[in-house]
Design a binder for these strands. Structure first.
Lengths: 168, 168
DNA sequence: TCAAATATTCAGTTTGAAATGAACTGGGAT
DNA sequence: ATCCCAGTTCATTTCAAACTGAATATTTGA
């Protein structure tokens, strides 16, 4: 059978699920994230399990994962015992931070390799060095992007952002 | 038993294998890439299958994948019938291109969603718009980084690069 | 303190991708 | 033309991660 791909909102949620897998997140985490981008929340675990048709266990696990990543936040709803989650106000700086951490790990691996790579000849040294430079630049670039989405300093970047092309 | 984690070079190759999985590539593709970063090549398929202890089929498939991504190049070795691969001179621009394509796909999903998201309320519209802006900036940022590693225009960027901090 | 409601953990199952071996294809050399 | 060698493709197996249901823990309210 397969769920209705008709509804554009649902389709988007599924697309996000697929996309999530591509960068190493569980599919359900992606679907959750997609759902919250559209619907915002707050929503309870049971509610989410219901609408996304997955077990409450999976929702619990993946919601906490997204909370960890800064995408979701737990909020209290007055008079309710359940936990509620909602889309974080500005998850983007956090997301970039995770990304930078991954890049940094790779750079570390390359750096640890450096003292031993001369065994493999002088070309090896320059190949590794070139790759280190690539990761270094990639990290700088992402960090710079991070500041643009950092709540702590939004006013400073505002002017610079306004110079860039507006989206439709 | 598990292979020798003792040798720093081999360890690095394995680390690269793990890292590859994190961004959606097969482990063997990562190990191949790691091996070529260190050893450069050219190396034949059988040679690679031997040293990495995997089937020739896997090597074939994954080497072609990496060729597709611009990480490896096929080269002819005079007097040899086998195919040889070597690490591409400058794979970085290509790698970024693939990355940008992935980001662009997500941006497209968000754009397709736009005309329908008002069903979910005004907050939904601004959430989606905010995310679109994030992806748009991320793409711009990666594209700009790309030009720094693009063979076609290395001289133009050289001066700008020299302003940035040098690596140890 | 107990009972009810909810969240988390965990062992087991399912699933899908990755890896393999074997069959197939193609391209030279003899 | 045929044999050989290397690469690719494909059906099958393997394996790791995701997901689930049930058990456990935790929290809240009486």
């Amino acid at each position: 059978m397969g769920k209705s791909l008709q509804n554009p909102l649902d389709r988007f949620v599924e697309q996000f699920g697929i996309a999530a897998k591509q960068d190493g997140l569980p599919r359900i985490a992606g679907r959750l994230m997609g759902w919250f981008v559209v619907h915002g929340g707050p929503a309870s675990l049971s509610e989410l399990a219901d609408t996304l048709h997955v077990s409450r266990a999976s929702i619990s696990t993946n919601a906490r994962l997204l909370e960890q990543l800064g995408v979701l936040e737990r909020v209290a709803v007055p008079g309710e015992r359940q936990d509620f989650y909602r889309f974080a106000e500005n998850p983007y700086a956090r997301l970039l931070e995770s990304h930078v951490e991954r890049l940094q790990t790779r750079l570390d691996h390359l750096t640890q390799l450096m003292p031993h790579v001369d065994e493999a000849g002088p070309d090896a040294v320059s190949r590794v060095q070139a790759m280190r430079e690539f990761y270094d630049q990639a990290i700088s670039s992402s960090e710079s992007l991070m500041t643009q989405f950092d709540d702590a300093a939004p006013r400073i970047m505002r002017a610079a952002n306004e110079d860039r092309a507006n989206l439709g």
